[in-house]
Every structure is written in C-alpha cells, then in structure tokens.
Design a protein around this nucleic acid. Structure first.
Lengths: 339, 339
DNA sequence: TGCTGAGATGTGAGCGGTCACAATTGTGAT
DNA sequence: ATCACAATTGTGACCGCTCACATCTCAGCA
C-alpha cells in the first residue's frame, strides 16, 4: 500500500520528446544540430528542453558513440607557475573543443608513480595525453607501453619526431648566455635543472653550445632541482670560491635563491655578479634586483599543444608544430663585469 | 567479396567472460569485488582480464549506475601558487576516491563567464562543486541557481553555514598585525586584496579588528588586485608621503612589489619599513629580505575540502569542517621601527 | 539418503544516448 | 493530377555495464 513516489530522475531525450510531441530521435537530431529539421519542430524541442531543464547525459552519449571525449595530462609539479599556466590553458582549450581534461599528477620520481598516473589516465579511456613532466623516465614508460593513444609533450629537445611541440629551449639558453658574454663576462657558471628533465638538459646544451661558439671556457654545470632553496644552497657553496662573474640559472626560482645567497654575503647584483634566470615568472620583474630572464609563453604553449593533440586524435595527420621562440627580457640583474 | 576485417574494439566484460568461461555477470562481480565468488573463478577472470588487457569502460559504468563520478572545480586565477596547490591536492584526493575532477576556469569578472563555467560543470553532470574563486559574485550566481548539487568553498568568512571549510583568515591577519604592533609599530598600512574577494575582506577585517583591539589608529586600507605590479605601484604612491613604518600586505606578491618600490627609493627593509605578507609562497623565504608572512597550507585545505564535499555527496551528513589555523612565519622583513 | 539454505553463478532488462534503416511528408516537374 | 525525389520524422537495435531476480551447487544435518 505504498504511495507511488515519482522517482526523481533527470529528464532524458524521451521525456523531452514526449513534451515536444516528437520522437526521441528528433530530439537527438536537435541536439546534434542535424540539418534537416523543420524550424518549427526545432523550436518546439528547444522549448521543451528549456521547460524540463534538460541536460544531455554525457555518459550515455560517450557510451553510444564509443568515445570518451577526455584527454589526459600527465604532470609533475603542477603547482608551479609554468606548468600551472599551461595546464590552465589546456583546460580551457579542451573545454572549448568539448573535451574533458583529466590531470594526473605524478608524485616524486618513482617509476611506479608514473606508471600509476598513466594507468589512471588509460583507465579513464583518454583519447590523448599531454605530458608536462618531460622527464626521460616518463617517455621510457610511455614507450614501453607502446600505447595506442596519441600523446604530445610540451617541452622537449626536438628529437621525438613530429609529435613534439616545443619552445626552443636551446635558443633561449643561448640568448641568455650570449647576453652575458656580450656584456663581457668570461667566467660564467650554469645552474642547471634536474638531469633527467629534458628541458633542463636542453637549456644546458644551449648554454654549452653558446659558450663553445664564442670560445669561452666553461666549467661543469651544477645540477639543481628547480627550487629556490637549492639555488640558495648552491649560492652559499659557490661563494666560498668566488671565481665567477655571472651565473645563468635555468629557472627563475633558483636564480632567486642564488640572489638571496649573494645578498647574504653582502655582494651586489649586478655590481659583483650578474644573474640571468629562465621562465619569467610574474614575480621576476619585482625581485631585487629585477631579474633578467628568458620569457616563455606557457599559456600559448598549452594552447598549441592541445591543438596538435586534437588534430592528431581527429586523425587529420600531424599538424606540424611550430617552434615557439623564447624572448630575452633584460632587467637589472645583469651588467658588465667590474674589473 | 571483402574480407571480414575483425573490428578492433576494446574488449568488454563479455569478451572477458568468454575467455574465462563464466558469465558476464561474474566478470562484473569480480570488477566490483563482490564477496561470494570462488577464488578459483576470480583468478580465472582476473587472468582473462590481463590477457585481453581489459579496461572497464567508464561511460558504461556511469550510465548504468546513473552517476557521473565527477566533481567540478570553479576556479579563478588557477595559475597562482595558492589555488594551484589546492587544485592539485583536490585532483589527487579526487582520483583516490575514484572521482574525476573537472576544472572550469572563470576568466575575468564578468558574470556571464561565471555562469558559463558553472553551466559547463553542470552539463558534465558533476556531483559536487568546489569553489576556489571566492568572489561574492560567484556565490550570488550559485545562490540564484539554487542548484541541487552540493558545493564547498575553500576560503570564506565563515558565514555560509556548514558547507564552509576555511582557513581562519581573520586569525591569520590578526597574527600578522599583532606582530607588527608588538614590534612597536603604530603607523601601519594595510594593502588589501580585491574588495569582492571574500578572503581579502576577511583579512582586512582581521587587520582592523586587531588594530582596534590594541587602540592603534588606522587609515583606510588600500584595495589591490593581488599582483606584484600593483604592489609596486602602490609602493611608489605611498612613498610620496611616507607617513608609515610598516605595511601588512594581504598576499606575498603584493608585498614583493612593495619591497621593490622601497628598494628603488633606497629605503631599507626592515630598517625603514617593515613588511608582512600572506600565504608563504615558496619563493617568499628567498625574497630580499626574506619575507615575514602568514603561512596557509593550501594542499591540506584542498584535501579537507574534498573530504567534506565527498561526505556530503555520499549523504553522510555534513562533516563539520575544522578551521585551519594559519601560522606566522617570522623572517627578516620585519623589525622594530627606528625612531 | 534426502532436505535445507547459503554460497556461487547465470539471465533479462534497462541506463540515455546514437546509428542504420524505414516510413512518411512535401515539393516541383511533367 | 501524378510521379520522382528530397526533406523530415520515426523505429529497432545496440553501446558496456549494473541491477533485480532466478537458478544451480554443495556442505551440513536430520
């Protein structure tokens, strides 16, 4: 003797169809704006949708179409400015293209974490993957799986065929290095990023290439971990010898730490030491002194990279990705060395 | 006369069932680890899954269960450190709980952008929403929709009932202000965040409350926009009068800009002016001088907030959210005023 | 040995869309 | 008025999974 409770479920196309007095297929056609629908019919359907507050069910559509309309992002350190900017851009572009963007963070360096994140994405049935953690290791895993899902990586050394979209890290690093050399510096250190990061490696190569091309002798780059803390520690170490007049840091955070250490020691920047960073995070313009650095457009990078990925998913053949050229921003942390 | 091409489709539970010589239902049971399955059977099924490289189809599961297992994040400025950290934590926690996290960025302040982002999420059938852009406007929109989807906000003034999880911004601001007062400062400026941000407002209230409680006369806070650039501009303005000995900035970026302006003018920090920030972004420890600031644990915030949201989705009643108490980190940008 | 009931497994239907195809209507040319 | 053909609309089946319910198996006990 229980009263029939109308089960509150979201309205489906059949509900809309009933209200609009058409078949569910017609509703479906309106949804996918099929060309041959009488205007009056369409109007009726649209009205019914509005009345019922109808929202198409994503799962149902995906199931019947056999697609997930999801793309995955494999990311490390996604709280940092660069990756975060790119991710936000990817997210927006994906949304515009009707894709859901699913981000999997990889924690730490352990391969099983990479594997886990990748598995997670694959389990979601992603149609493509953007790799923002361009560590060699990640590619090794991707390769090993020989996955059938297309993937694209943001930064790279350019040796990965045409699935690679990249900012020319080498050119950027050369820009920075050349700037120092042209100012007259000869004893220049390079504080590199983690060895296994493709970007870090590329910047290091750019540095070495430029130094070589100009016949400036080099010492081995120091391998850092991208953090300001590390830069600070290195700075303290370096100051024990003090046989340099300039340092090119492969990101702005480490440059900041470096400057901190120099200030601690009472040294003047750029009076005693010139510093160049990389990335141009928004804060860099307000460091003390304002940091000379190399700017990359992270958002644009994200946008382009998703364009490449989507075209690849659509099977339109590889859009040949342009290379984005980074730009040297000269501020006040560099000057000619004082002799 | 065409040769039958085996249509390459992902294996389904029926394929697995065939290989394991069980019914598809049994496979489904293994998938959902139903208790009553003979071990030997389970093993056979698991093996078959492995052999076929079977991955469950998310859309199908969601469709039949009538759920989306998706939660949405409404976010502004998601490239900044704080939000980005929280989002990453949310993402991870969501993933652990089997949820997909969909982030919708709202661009600019226009209401239609907020509406658009919210619509996007609703169209995805999200089961809950986390709001990271705690601008009054957003809540207005949420309220107006009177949506049936539970939502939680990260930062708030605490007046939004029990759906609110927050860092006690007021306490944090009071901490910072008290620190300055106790050092002996009496002419203290406050550089606030955008008026329509709930957090900014809360910090401002905290500042005013503490000043009032200690009988220190105040001037009207300056309303900023969170950026270092703004801080710099304000700094330049302020220096024209120079009738203060300390500034409490409601985030670290603006504090940085402020310090930049002071340095430009040849002033010493904290010799001439003390500065306190808010957030403790990782760079703050390496600003020059290292910034005294108020630390909030963004990641923990994200984690807790999703816990609240998930429990609400599960209908387990509101987990009463604890208040996270921020911590004052004293570094070198503050000292007693010099008279 | 037969009965009972829990444990283990199988069958049919349906979730909300889309696809392929069929059926109906309308239109201009004859 | 008639017919061919396009425009418009409708019907059945299916996507891969879960639910509800039925069936089967077998250990434990009378």
């Amino acid at each position: 003797m229980s009263i029939e409770v109308p089960k509150a479920r979201a309205p489906s196309i059949r509900d809309v169809a009933r209200v609009a007095e058409v078949s569910y297929q017609t509703v479906s056609r309106v949804l996918n704006d099929h060309p041959s629908i009488r205007d009056s019919t369409r109007a009726r359907v649209v009205q019914a949708m509005k009345d019922l507050n109808y929202r198409p069910n994503r799962a149902a559509r995906d199931l019947s179409r056999g697609r997930s309309r999801t793309i995955g992002v494999l990311s490390a350190s996604s709280a940092e400015y660069g990756p975060a900017s790119s991710i936000a851009a990817i997210q927006d572009a994906g949304r515009d293209a009707g894709y859901l963007v699913n981000i999997a963070n990889i924690a730490g360096e352990k391969p099983e974490s990479i594997q886990g994140a990748l598995d997670h994405l694959l389990n979601q049935g992603v149609e493509g993957i953007v790799v923002i953690a361009p560590q060699e290791r990640v590619f090794a895993v991707l390769q090993r799986l020989s996955i059938d899902v297309p993937f694209v990586t943001l930064q790279s050394d350019g040796n990965r065929g045409n699935r690679t979209l990249f900012v020319d890290q080498i050119a950027g690093a050369r820009l920075a290095t050349r700037h120092l050399i042209q100012l007259g510096h000869r004893r220049i250190f390079h504080l590199a990023g983690p060895q296994n990061w493709i970007e870090a490696e590329a910047r290091m190569h750019g540095f070495l290439a430029e130094m070589g091309a100009r016949d400036v002798p080099t010492t081995a780059p120091i391998l850092g971990d991208w953090t300001a803390n590390f830069g600070y520690q290195v700075g303290r170490e370096l100051l024990r010898v003090r046989d340099f007049t300039a340092i090119f840091s492969s990101n702005d955070q480490m440059a900041l730490g470096l400057m901190h250490a120099l200030h601690d020691e009472g040294l003047s920047i750029p009076g005693d030491v010139s510093i160049v960073g990389f990335d141009d995070i928004p804060e860099a313009a307000h460091f003390w002194p304002p940091l000379t650095t190399v700017r990359q457009d992270f958002a644009e990078l994200g946008r382009r990279c998703i364009a490449v990925l989507l075209s690849e998913i659509a099977g339109e053949g590889a859009v040949h990705p342009d290379t984005l050229v980074p730009e040297l921003i000269v501020r006040s942390s560099t000057a000619a060395p004082s002799f």
